[in-house]
Amino acid sequence: MFKDLDPILHSQLRLAVMSLLISVKEAEFTFIREKTNSTAGNLSVQIQKLKDAGYIDVTKQFKDNYPQTICKITREGVAAFENYVISLQSYLKKD
């Protein structure tokens, strides 16, 4: 079932993260956590998977002495997201 759909993106939380990042320039980890209503632990794991796949860039820095993690979609990530949406549309047409 859904064998053509990119397995990295075809998961609820990872898809939510990518959908957020596709429409912004960059976003803080805390922003993504609030919007996806996820736990920090689970979100960290899924962000790492997206990073390993080359779909997002993760930058860790300090802002006013507080650690800050910033996520940004990569060109490969945009392409993968577009392909995923095209595959979804073709599935929906089949139905």
Binding site: L5, H10, S11, Q12, R14, L15, N42, L88, L92, D95
Partner: peptide, 9 residues
């Protein structure tokens, strides 16, 4: 949000 499989819809 949990990490679940989704239908295309």
């Amino acid at each position: 949000m949990r990490d679940e499989q989704l239908s295309p819809e």
